[in-house]
Amino acid sequence: MAVIGEIDLYTAPRLQSEFTRVLEETALDRVVIDMSGVEFCDSTGMNVLLSALKRLKERGGVLEVAAPRPAVRKILQVTGLDSVFTVHESVPAELANPTG
């Protein structure tokens, strides 16, 4: 999944409902979020990711974060969530050219 733009109090509800939709409609157990297009993310955004992680864990899945920009990396570090999510420097090669 690729997320683009700014994730904050205003936009987080939309991301939250999109996660809900994707997780309800699919049986995915590994979700990698391409954050390369995210310019800003605050604690509201981190809470959305945590909520998605929790749901995935309930079915034995994982949530991973890929290619965060420095601003996003900062909040991952400050919150300690960089040790909760697997953080990839770039989008994993096997996922780099999505076909669907």
């Binding site: 605050d42 604690s43 509201t44 809470n47 945590l50 400050v78 919150t79």
Partner: peptide
């Protein structure tokens, strides 16, 4: 107060303190 996704209450204040 955190509304939509209260996974970690008080995270905002913690972020400010850390920054």
């Amino acid at each position: 107060m955190l509304g939509i996704v209260p996974e970690m209450p008080g995270l905002g204040i913690a972020v400010i303190a850390g920054l």
